[in-house]
Design a protein around this nucleic acid. Structure first.
Lengths: 351, 351
DNA sequence: TTGTAGGCGTTATCAT
DNA sequence: ATGATAACGCCTACAA
């Protein structure tokens, strides 16, 4: 590469070049009140001329422990967060706010972090933890950094958090769905209720104990509405889908709809699952909503354009991102803030 | 917050606790061959027990200049990159590969970086520069870091790059479109051809001189095909749309279609622009393709589902991300690699 | 195989 | 208002 080799400039180099001490130059950048305006302008101009773009951030981070970087810790692989409409919308909401503040975000997947790895989590000043990390030690590692932390879609200790009202959303849509369905035979399609990589109902299994997880809140909502309506639900009617993905949801729905005592109402914990169920039903020649009613959760864009339109619970995922970013940047005061965003049932054709 | 205060551990602390020197512990993490396996295992186990999660990355970065972080420098605001299907697909492709390698990505918008800012660009070891930065000094700043750089969708100096074949795509689709259109009255809807924030044709304006930019390559392709077909194009027929956004494109198309000498073929430099033009035409009661033909560029998902389906040039934007990430991680040898991904015309109903 | 010591570039404290 | 200096935590010659 035929290019001019540009030397990395340091404060010391500049100090020599300008005949000023390193401390003063540092002050010119960080503490304008510590020197005369005239000198400061001169220094800054000279730095620009020589090509010094500002203090090295690694050195500064070592010294001060601050970088100005926001870390976004994702409980799923990066790929998932770009492909799932809810996660993607959330990130998009963050991006909107961070753009304005010129903040950079470091995307960290907590899915399968080896324990012995240089602590990349030392880089950011702030952490947004999106979704409960599968690996519990991740949170301990973060705590040890003594950085600002906000959790999203789950709670942890006394840290500020942003959630949506999962219980109420599930309760409301279940209540609505039950009213719509005659002779109601319900099946619940749940997400990660138990720690089991295959499709199975939860009969005889231990529910994952994160009692405040999205899934268990939604399950509580469903069960609450069902109970209020005087409907019994057995564990055999509650199915566990291990990951929120189209293919596996499709298989699950197909299996369910092929069973002898086919349900006529599907309470799905996400739109992805519900959309897959719609597809499965269509292929089996089961008509919606006359023979089978389906409701989802999230209200992703596709829910509005599919056929039949999906009745679901709207959650403001982009707004969730905005709120989170703002909460973080306004320095998190009051310290222990717990935001719960409202949700609303959106009625379309599927139920 | 009632929580146990956890002290930040350093090598020195561990050294004291274990009765081994800091160097040995450092070696246990970074150079396994420098000590006995038994000692290494013991040290690692002990570190885990005490809660030491690995060397502080800021200190390491200062010492070695390496962090293992990949910086993605985006020429548009973060927000744009989450909302535009092409940019989003590219990032998604990167994410796929980075997941496997457990690398984290730092998203940096180069749009409006103030000059005097701590050099955050000192953090990453590798840079992916996606789209030519508006501010030329950004590239100079990066060069000064002496880090690995890959440019995407443009070229810079001798750095490795990943591009798509913009010229050929534009040439092919223009050639096809011309054949389809009787008595061809063409208008070109170009993106950022001139430095002008308003919609205007390029007559009498200086084209932006980045002759290898996406837009100028596509323009060359169009003009090449037009010329070959014996068609004349005046600068009055070439319109400049300042940013690739739906609203402004819509306004542009409307204005164009309302003019007295309305074109009957629109060569649009992106699907977003083309989709906006379709919308404008529909509202004006102009029927496609009988009264007006439209072609786009990119082949975003929406192009396949809109009405009428958009004839466009498919570019593999997700694959572009994968290729870029792989090129970066395989240590960039041979040093000066220039990848050009093929494109292909996709025929639908709009032309 | 393991320990000692210097320095990476910066900022903050204390002098001047 | 400005300068000298120690310390942030780590890595790596080099010495033992």
């Amino acid at each position: 590469m035929p290019r001019v080799e540009v030397k990395k400039l340091t404060l010391k180099d500049l100090s020599k070049a300008l005949g000023v001490s390193t401390a003063t130059i540092s002050n010119a950048f960080n503490r304008p009140d510590q020197l005369s305006a005239k000198l400061r302008d001169k220094i800054l101009a000279e730095c620009e001329r020589l090509g010094y773009t500002g203090p090295n951030i690694a050195a500064r981070a070592l010294r001060t422990g601050e970088t100005g970087i926001v870390g976004v810790v994702l409980s799923d692989p990066l790929r998932y967060n770009f492909n799932d409409a809810v996660a993607h919308g959330f990130l998009s909401g963050l991006a909107e706010v961070f753009d304005e503040q010129h903040v950079s975000m470091l995307l960290l997947s907590s899915k399968e972090t080896p324990y012995h790895k240089p602590s990349i989590e030392a880089v950011p000043d702030y952490f947004i933890v999106y979704g409960e990390p599968r690996n519990a030690t991740v949170l301990e590692r973060l705590e040890r950094q003594h950085k600002n932390i906000i959790t999203v879609d789950f709670d942890y200790g006394g840290y500020p958090s942003v959630n949506i009202d999962n219980f109420q959303g599930a309760f409301d849509i279940a209540q609505y769905a039950i009213k719509q369905t005659k002779d109601c035979q319900v099946a619940i399609l749940g997400l990660r209720l138990i720690d089991e990589p295959q499709l199975t109902n939860v009969a005889g299994r231990q529910l994952l104990d994160s009692s405040r997880s999205i899934s268990s809140r939604r399950l509580d909502g469903y069960l609450g509405a069902l109970k209020q309506a005087g409907l019994k639900v057995t564990p055999e009617q509650i199915w566990n889908i291990p990951t929120n993905e189209a293919e596996i949801s499709y298989q699950a729905a197909k299996q369910l709809l092929l069973a002898k005592d086919r349900p006529n109402l599907l309470l799905c914990m996400s739109d992805r699952v519900a959309l897959a169920a719609i597809k499965a039903a269509a292929e089996l020649g089961i008509s919606i909503p006359s023979q089978l009613q389906i409701v989802g959760f999230d209200d992703i864009p596709e829910a509005a354009v599919c056929h039949p339109g999906l009745t679901t619970v709207h959650q403001p995922f982009v707004e969730k991102g905005r709120v989170t970013a703002n909460l973080l940047l306004q320095e998190l005061s009051p310290k222990e803030q717990k935001v719960v965003l409202p949700v609303a049932v959106v009625k379309r054709e599927s139920c």
